[in-house]
C-alpha cells in the first residue's frame, strides 16, 4: 500500500532559488527508504514538507490519503508522521525523560493512564526503559537521540522521518540509533524515511532516493545505487568503503561472491576466496 505519495513537489524559500524542483516519489507502508544527498540538495526541506512544517509551493504530498499542508488536517498528518531532528539537545522540552516522552501525548489530550502506557511502550521500544527518571542532559548523544525517538513514538506514528538524526552523534551513538530504527521498522512495522548524507546508513534501507540540487537523480535498492559509483562521485557522494574495495577488487579480476554492502559482507566474501 502506498503510504506517502509526493507529486511534482516544488519548494522555494525566497522565490528565486528553488530548494526542490519537481520531486516525485512514493513510499510503501512498512518500507525503509533512505534519502541521500549532499548539503543543499533539498533533503531537509523534504523532511519538513513530509509533516507539514513547510507547505509545498507547487505540487502535493499525501499521507494515508490526507493532503499535507492543509491547516485543518495538520494534526492528523503530524500524528501519523513523526520527525526526529538532527540536534538531540534542541528538540527536548522537559528535564526528565518520562516528562519528555509524555509531551506529545499530552498535546493530543490523551488521558493520563494511557500516557503512562505509551511512555512504557515508547521507552522499551528504544531500549531506554531504565532511564525513565533520568535527566537527558546527563545522557550520551545516542541515548538522547533514542529518547527523542521515543518522544515521537509516543504519538504512535505510522511513519518515522529521521532528518539527519545521526549527524551529530559519535560512531557508537550512530550505531545505537540505527539499530533502534531498524528494529522499529522490522518489529513494529513503522515506515521509515531516513534522510542522511552518510552512505553507510543507506545500506540497510529497502530503497534509496538520491537527491541533488532539488531534483531526484536516482532511485533504487542500495545495491543498484552503489553501482553508479562515478555518477555518485560527481554528486559529491562516496560509496561506502567496503563497497568501493569490493568493486576495485572485482575490476582487478578477484572473484568476489555475492553483493557486498557492509564491512561484514566484505569480510565474508574475502574469507571465501
Amino acid at each position: 500500500m502506498e503510504q506517502i505519495i509526493a507529486k511534482d513537489l516544488y519548494f522555494t524559500y525566497d522565490k528565486q532559488t528553488p530548494a526542490l524542483k519537481g520531486v516525485n516519489f512514493t513510499v510503501q507502508k512498512g518500507e525503509y527508504v533512505a534519502i541521500i544527498g549532499h548539503n543543499g540538495s533539498g533533503k531537509s526541506t523534504l523532511a519538513r514538507l513530509l509533516n507539514g512544517l513547510l507547505t509545498p509551493t507547487l505540487g502535493t504530498i499525501t499521507v494515508d490519503g490526507i493532503v499535507v499542508g492543509d491547516k485543518k488536517t495538520l494534526f492528523e498528518v503530524r500524528k501519523r508522521v513523526g520527525v526526529v531532528f538532527q540536534n538531540p539537545d534542541n528538540q527536548m522540552v522537559a528535564s526528565i525523560v518520562e516528562d519528555e516522552v509524555a509531551f506529545g501525548p499530552e498535546n493530543l489530550g490523551v488521558p493520563r493512564k494511557e500516557i503512562k502506557e505509551r511512555i512504557d511502550f515508547a521507552l522499551s521500544a528504544v531500549g531506554m526503559q531504565d532511564f525513565k527518571r533520568a535527566t537527558p542532559s546527563r545522557l550520551s548523544g545516542g541515548q538522547k537521540q533514542r529518547i527523542a525517538i521515543a518522544g515521537v513514538l509516543a504519538l504512535k506514528p505510522d511513519v518515522l522521518v529521521l532528518d539527519e538524526a545521526t549527524a551529530m552523534l559519535d560512531p557508537q551513538g550512530r550505531k545505537e540509533v540505527l539499530s533502534t530504527v531498524q528494529k522499529l521498522n522490522k518489529e513494529q512495522g513503522v515506515t521509515v524515511v531516513a534522510i542522511t548524507h552518510y552512505m553507510e546508513e543507506v545500506t540497510k534501507a529497502d530503497r534509496v532516493i538520491v537527491l541533488s540540487d532539488g531534483e531526484m537523480v536516482f532511485t533504487g535498492t542500495p545495491k543498484e545505487i552503489f553501482l553508479k559509483q562515478k555518477e555518485l562521485k560527481n554528486l559529491g557522494l562516496e560509496v561506502p568503503l567496503a563497497v568501493y574495495i569490493a568493486q576495485k577488487l572485482k575490476e582487478q579480476g578477484v572473484e568476489i561472491d555475492g553483493d557486498v554492502l557492509t564491512q561484514s559482507d566484505l569480510a565474508e566474501a574475502l574469507c571465501k576466496l
Binding site: 512544517l53 503530524r78 509531551f103
Partner: peptide, 27 residues
Amino acid sequence: FRRADELADAMDARCYAGSKKRTKYKK
C-alpha cells in the same frame, strides 16, 4: 535563537498547540 527555532519546529512536529485540549501526565 537557532536553538529556539529548532525547538519550536520540534514542538510543532509533536502536535503542540498551546493549552487547548491538553492533558497533564505529571501529577
